[in-house]
Amino acid sequence: MDIFIQQLINGLIVGSIYALIALGYTMVYGIMQLINFAHGEIVMIGAMVTITCINLLLDLGVQLPGPLLLLAGLLMAIPVSMLLGFTIERVAYRPLRRAPRLAPLITAIGLSIVLQQLAMLIWGRNYRPFPSILPTKVHDFYGAAITDLQIAIFILAFLLMGGLFFLIERTKLGRAMRATSQNPDVAGLMGVNINTVISMTFVIGSALGAVAGVMVAANYDQAHAYMGFMIGLKAFTAAVLGGIGNLAGAVVGGILLGLIESLGSGYLGDLTGGFLGSNYKDIFAFVVLIAVLIFRPSGLMGERVAERA
């Protein structure tokens, strides 16, 4: 088996999931300069709802092919996450829009804790296995293994990203979003309903997050109430890496981070003569991030704003 190509594939798959989640962070940041710390939890809830829904259908004895069951689960999870995103913005962020910057950060952290604990109350403390409903056929790809699921994740992720770019660049809502991110006050004066735009930003980001959550759960065959934390952190790192607030940056950052992590952990042992092993995998995200920011303080694709005196 070709390890390089295998790591490349793994990296691309994980990276495209990171990218989907990173888009949620970066959209919210672009519009309100806020780190939506609870986004990782939305991803987790998306995964949990889907698993519950599929199990429910299976218990009811519904005879459907796996992918259709998954689709049914997703159709349940997406609205739940969207509603959650909408509510979060309404309850925890909107009242603090003019408050000092750290206040919404604290409510975001509070929300994150609340959602984790709620998830534990509902779904318990243990890992929830992803129901084995999907075909496990493995394809050979230039000496590396790739499953149908991985192919599907990759394609779906890019379709969704394409859809998002279309929405932002070509629709009225997208234009309103871009205007709001440039200058909310002026956009408001021009007749853009800022509240609606911000709500929609959360709703769309949450929908993408829910899909990403299901992808994570299916890819690793499990979900857990704390899963949102690390994946959210990585995705946020990816967004910053690409230049936060920049959509294309989030995609590039996500894919890049996935690849670096995967290739890095695969080869680190060899490179350092066994001194550092794959147990340092989680460090990559941060080391790369710090390195990039030292040389490009606004991220890879972020605008370089000249210092204005």
Partner: peptide
């Protein structure tokens, strides 16, 4: 932890 999280949110609000 749930109460703790809710308290954080409400104090900030």
């Amino acid at each position: 932890m749930l109460i703790f999280g809710l308290a954080m949110i409400s104090i900030m609000l």
